[in-house]
Design a protein around this nucleic acid. Structure first.
Length: 274
DNA sequence: GCCCAGGAGATGT
DNA sequence: ACATCTCATGGG
């Protein structure tokens, strides 16, 4: 079924840009469990297509298809590094994932690399997520993860993050208002998220940007810290101070811009100094 | 062996 | 508020 014909590079957005870690590519299609059902996405000459029970509107929102990225580009056209990064990746969009999935994935991301994060997310899904036809696994539910033992998760090689996953899952199971974060002011939502085990400033910003619709949330990891120093002249500040300054300079869509800059730096598409 | 990876938490000042 | 250390794991 055709779901749209907007500019969207599925591989870049769902896999390569490291904003989520669970989509699989098979025969040129991209699959995952979305909204409780397996979905496969692909593009041909007519546009973007889906196969699966997921409603088209749900996928359009997940893929951020209803946002005007040309308008975002115009917003940042006066900033050379920003303009260059946007121009390099015309098919990149910032996903709207379920907050719970972004939360678990980015707790695993701490002091880790993209390849290994992907492996850990897969191990977690295959160990305690629901299996569907076609070999796709859903994210484990908060209830299921809350009942895991620490040794059980350590056997999946999540290492010291095991208790973070379990304790955060218990907080969510017991009523932490994940869904309310979307409608809170950014600062309040950020502060509340950092009360969860394994969630610091950076992971909180990832959850807000990729899972709660807060486009101003600006995660600062090792790559973004380098790029802010090199391309924007921000140095000698803490990560949180860099994030605050970046939000001030880049405005209400700072986080969207961050994703273009992050990817440009990480894949070496724009040079970083030493 | 060392350093690094989409960092966070504990402890000390 | 800021600096330093440790925390598993795998790849270069």
């Amino acid at each position: 079924m055709l779901i749209g014909n907007e500019s969207l590079d599925l591989r870049l957005t769902l896999v390569e840009s490291a904003q989520c870690f669970h989509w699989v590519e098979r025969d040129g299609r991209f699959g995952a469990v979305v909204d409780g059902a397996p979905v496969w996405l692909w593009r041909d000459g007519a546009g973007l297509h889906k196969e699966g029970d997921c409603a088209p509107g749900v996928l359009r929102r997940y893929l951020d298809l209803d946002r005007d990225y040309a308008a975002i580009a115009a917003e940042y056209a006066h900033i050379p590094a920003a303009r260059e990064a946007i121009g390099l990746f015309p098919g990149l969009r910032v996903l709207n994932q379920p907050a719970w999935e972004a939360l678990i994935a980015f707790i695993l991301s701490a002091n880790n690399n993209v390849t290994r994060i992907r492996g850990l997310v897969r191990a977690l899904r295959e160990h305690c997520g629901e299996r569907f036809d076609g070999g796709l696994y859903a994210f484990p539910t908060p209830e299921r993860l809350a009942d895991c033992g620490e040794d059980e998760l350590r056997a999946l090689k999540v290492g010291y993050r095991a208790p973070f996953l379990i304790d955060t899952a218990r907080r969510v199971r017991d009523g932490f208002p994940l869904e309310a974060l979307r409608n809170m002011p950014y600062g309040e939502a950020h502060q509340l998220l950092t009360t969860l085990p394994g969630v610091g400033d950076k992971v909180a910003d990832c959850v807000l940007l990729f899972g709660c619709g807060h486009a101003e949330a600006f995660p600062v990891d090792v790559w973004v810290a380098r790029l802010l120093a090199d391309w924007f002249g921000l140095t000698c500040k803490s990560r949180s101070a860099m994030a605050k300054e970046a939000r001030a300079r880049l405005g209400i869509h700072a986080g969207l811009m961050q994703q273009f800059l992050f990817h440009a730096a990480r894949v070496g598409a724009m040079a970083l100094g030493d």
